[in-house]
Design a binder for these strands. Structure first.
Lengths: 185, 185, 185, 185
DNA sequence: AATGAATGAGGCTTCATTCAT
DNA sequence: TATGAATGAAGCCTCATTCAT
């Protein structure tokens, strides 16, 4: 049922989604949702928490592995596409709604997650620059945003069961991000 | 006043923005807005139309110039960052709301624009692949999405008057997109 | 279980009491109550009927005893405080909810009871005035309301098992009602 | 409009009163009330605050006059009946709803008022007992409750414009409370 | 041009009640 | 007897919109 709600939230936006629409999708009447959930907002919260918990499960494993910066980046990107595959709707919601949600106490965990996120990526990039595997002539914060967005926006068009597996998409994305789309001269 | 509205729409989302909030920002009462506009939706429409008209002014000029694929791509990206600079709010709205707006007749022009957009970028990329300036080992639609998203998502963090000019950001993004972030061996 | 319900009705008011609260207090789920009762309203009805039946048992005995007006009044007041002691919750509900309940057919018995009540007290007072034991300079209907309210409102603060027995409270109330709180000169 | 709301609250109870009923009485649609008030609860709050403010205006004047205990009690009772005359609905609401409202922060002022109230009456009674004008053989707290309830419950039957003026009712009530209803032997 | 007041549709939520298990 | 899940009516409130002034 959370999946149903997530799907609708992702499709129409949280605010534009009425409780009735969710109930329709779930084959219930609007009021019946409240047997299972406290509120529309609590559905949203649970969807996002579940996603972030799993995401951080994956990320933490990668970060704890003590790989070099480039393999770390590759693993993080791959893990991200796997999460998009598993939680596409949640990722799309996260992208679209985070900004105004963080203002609320209840969604403070989003801000916390974003800070942790930034730390993980930035430090990986900085290590890479220090080790000479990533370019030194780029603004590292700009690079961070480039990589971060590049990966996560994919949730807006990705459809599970499409012609590319998440791993294949990750491979191509990594190839573009790391080596560029121009032919090497 | 449209700028005011655009700012609020971008900040809080179209649905979460009440007419009263816009009026507050504009220093008048909610009802008074209706002397200037037909409806909340018509504000949204005008914001998006104005942005797209100007965007296509720039794009069409680039496309009509008959440049090679790589200079075309560079010019399109640079033009895009200039639009983000000029219409940051409109771009953010476009990103967040397009998906569910296209379903309405009134916003059919968004779908038309997206199709034109896709054609412009895809053909440029395909010309580049044919000419041997862009890599042949990449799925061209994936590349298209990669480049497109990479550019536009920047509207979500870009703040006009920041430390980088739009041209500088375009230069760095192009550098990453074309040559990658990895050091060449 | 009716006692439980009465307690909650008295505490929070009938309308503000949800069936779920009653069920919680009774240690079962809301739906399960309906095995025992037809409806929330029928609980209310049974609580009030039980109370009034017992009250009239006592009152009728007193009235049938053929006492003089002053002993009758003393006996009615004492009996009333005994009822408050036994059915505090029901009395409180009766006080708070009677007014709007009487409009419904189902609670017509409340109105009937109130009429009988009025007759009993008024005639006692009038007999007392005629016999010269109650003052003649007071509006008898005002006196009736004074005595009636004075007694029953006690249910709003009375707690069974407090420091005064119902008989002791009745004694003091009677002393105040009959002789006043001022020192006689 | 607050008067309208107060009337309906008093008649049907706060919980049983729907916003629509109030609007009907005011000749508006339910939603239109919200142009004038934040919420149903804020109407209730304003009704009660207005009443208590005025009540304490009167009480404080009496208490500051430095009268003896018996004239003080007489003045307080008379003032109370005047308030009942002016704010009958508010008084009735206060009586019926105070108990469960005090639990909410927003209605903490009710508890404060009740404490002040108790202090005023109790100290007057105690002074009277000390001065020998009120009986010494009565439990003073019981007397307090007796007098307090006796006065305020009148709001449940009082109708402004009836055959007795508030002052006349006060006079009779005081006569009963001070001298009792029994004929002096 | 702007205001103040109202409208009415629709949103979220609560709750008494039902019913298969 | 009791549960868990669902129903549907109704309640409070929000908000885009209208309109007389």
């Amino acid at each position: 049922m959370l999946d149903t709600a997530a799907e609708v939230f992702a499709e129409q936006g949280y605010n534009a989604t009425t409780v009735r629409k969710i109930a329709d999708h779930a084959g219930l009447l609007a009021g019946s949702l409240y047997y299972h959930f406290d509120s529309k907002e609590s559905m949203l919260e649970e969807i996002l928490r579940t996603f972030l918990d799993e995401l951080w499960g994956g990320y933490d494993t990668v970060l704890a592995a003590g790989l070099g910066p480039r393999p770390t980046l590759e693993a993080l990107v791959t893990e991200s596409f796997r999460e998009i595959d598993r939680h596409r709707a949640a990722v799309a919601i996260f992208q679209k709604e985070s900004r105004h949600l963080v203002a609320q106490d209840r969604f403070e965990f989003l801000a916390a997650s974003q800070r942790k996120f930034e730390t993980a990526w930035l430090s990986t990039l900085e290590r890479g620059v220090a080790d000479g595997v990533f370019r030194t002539d780029l603004d590292v914060r700009l690079t961070y945003r480039f990589v971060r967005d590049t990966v996560w926006v994919a949730a807006s068009w990705y459809r599970p069961g499409g012609q590319h597996s998440p791993e294949e998409i990750a491979r191509q994305y990594l190839s573009m991000v790391l080596d560029g789309i121009a032919v090497r001269i």
